[in-house]
Design a protein around this nucleic acid. Structure first.
Lengths: 337, 337
DNA sequence: CGATGCATTGTTAGCGATAACAAGATCGGC
DNA sequence: GCCGATCTTGTTATCGCTAACAATGCATCG
């Protein structure tokens, strides 16, 4: 029975061809030191000849760990999370890890817990949770210990390893830029109240104002959408005293710009605007938007480094990395009339 | 030695507690018909009591298949691919599959092949490749047979199962909308020439023009970026005869709008613009953008359905699904002056 | 020159599940 | 009441790999 089913070759096939035991093949694959150079080459040749590729499932079964990193994120096309995810995948691939994405519809405790459990089933080597709201963080309370975990944009007060963008510093940058241009005060259209990102930006904005001895105007609440920026703009455009606005993200700024445009308030002549995120299109808003750029790539890399440190070194030292944003000057800021 | 290491319970633990063999537990888990109701309940209770969750790696090892679907996509924050990915994850999760993302930096043959191989290592149950350019498609030529595969946005002429958005129909919609408003002809700022999406939109635009007996103006080439739209706008704004422009995506339209605004060409009074994609912000451009909406959710669902059909039914009938886009009317189109 | 130790390789035993087969229990038909 | 068919359950082998230990060879040292 010469069945010519091209079953993909296993380790024993390689071993037979190379004239060694399967264990030696395993050693070559895992870069064990004690293998004679000549043997190593012979095994490598056999691997190449057969086109052998190790079976991850078998390895995962015996080691209890996979080369898989789970990422839990909200299923959204928000620019921030999407960029983060893309950057993270890239970084993980470079480190030889595959990324399994468990997107959740909402960031409530139950959804997050479910996504986490699904990943645990797969014996992921580590877990990254993008947890920008308190409810997401809560879900991680009763995580089984021993699973490497990094949260991104999580609660700074928790003990996990985490990576955060210094939202307050970014907001301060934006606010101070407007103050420096000569504005008496700066209004703020915020993100959803339960997001840490939004809270941090509010905090930085308020602190910058207070430090400068400027009046703190009432907060204009919004969500992250352009629509909420538009609504805010409809209101702010009616108040002649408003000469400077800092929005919690660029899309809100876009909505705001449109509302101002409709009501004849010229940007930056009548009112200056600063956004947050530096989406690729921000340079093409009317006018080009001055904004704050959080380094998503840096966040992703830092997150991966922290995770890999936990995975390899077994240290669960809850380290944290804070990424400082930078200000990108464009044309939406000018001195008040 | 009562080591209280909370090793996660295995099937034998459940079996012992329920007083049955591990095989019976396996049967309960896999919904085999021949298990007495009473036994089934006892096993279920034991599973619940121990918080048992099956080991995917072990199952994958013995069956040769995992509950993992691999998605190969370009690592990008382009709105289209990102939306597609998000929608797909959602759909897969509902069907009980995890999604492993293999993002590639570039869509060349080598990158794609590498990502595909990495997924094959993991014994994915199926593979979805978002292959909007020819080089990506080429890489799939020498795929090992027997792996369920669906391409999205791939070459319509290939024999794979695939899901495509009818780009030509969308472009036709846009072009005809402009023609119907009374414009003599419509200019087109295209996407990168090697993308099928871009090619399809060009084709639809040209066909609509020819069908209407309108002159076909020279094509203005671009990539997907807002910058390329801006550059195109700088040029088009200088030509008084240009009264209607169809851009290959919304971000290009944004750049175009800014260029027109800078040069004092009013939209839609002087020139009408239609985009493609319906990004969430399109309603807040100045003016709100009339655009074409491809149903990303529908694409993702169709792709998953096709894949699941192949996975379960073993049929490798190369089916194909074509999703028709719709036109979203806003305020960037008006009759010519 | 035999003992000692390290480098190298092989042997054996699982990891936790499913598949294939075997065996006991139950049931209907004559 | 006996026989074969069917339902239910258990036993054993196996997937492809790594861990632990055993065995071999060779150099070093007193």
């Amino acid at each position: 029975m010469d069945v010519r089913v091209t079953r993909s070759p296993a380790m024993t096939d390689v071993a037979r061809l190379a004239g060694v035991s399967h264990q030696t093949v395993s050693r070559v694959l895992n870069d064990h030191p004690n293998v004679r150079e000549q043997t190593r080459l012979r095994v490598r040749a056999a691997i190449a000849e057969l086109g052998y590729r190790p079976n991850r499932a078998a390895r995962a079964l015996v080691t209890g760990k996979s080369q898989l990193i789970g990422v839990v994120a909200q299923n959204s096309t928000l620019y921030g999370p999407a960029s983060l995810l893309a950057a993270f995948e890239q970084a993980a691939a470079e480190a030889g890890f595959a990324v399994s994405v468990g997107s959740v519809g909402r960031l409530d405790r139950e959804s997050i817990a479910g996504a986490v459990e699904r990943h645990l089933d797969q014996r992921v080597a580590g877990l990254v949770v993008i947890a920008p709201v308190a409810s997401a963080d809560d879900a991680l309370e009763d995580m089984p210990a021993g699973v490497p975990l990094v949260t991104i944009d999580g609660d700074p007060r928790r003990a996990h390893a985490l990576v955060i963008v210094d939202q307050a510093a970014g907001a301060r940058l934006a606010t101070e830029r407007l103050l420096a241009a000569g504005h008496r005060t700066v209004w703020h259209v915020s993100g959803p109240a339960d997001w840490y990102d939004a809270a941090g930006r509010i905090e930085g904005w308020r602190a910058a104002l207070e430090d400068a001895g400027a009046e703190v105007p009432p907060l204009v609440p919004g969500d992250w959408s352009a629509a909420s920026g538009y609504d805010a703009g409809q209101m702010l455009a009616r108040m002649p005293e408003v000469t400077a606005v800092f929005t919690a993200n660029d899309h809100q700024a876009l909505g705001l710009l449109r509302a101002f445009s409709e009501r004849g308030r010229k940007v930056p002549e009548d009112v200056s605007v600063v956004g947050f995120d530096d989406v690729p299109e921000a340079a093409f808003f009317i006018p080009p938007l001055t904004t704050v750029r959080p380094a998503f790539g840096a966040v992703a890399h830092a997150g991966l480094d922290l995770l890999l440190a936990q995975i390899t070194a077994e240290t669960t030292t809850p380290e944290r990395v804070v990424i400082a944003p930078t200000l990108v000057d464009r044309a939406s800021v000018a001195p008040p009339a």
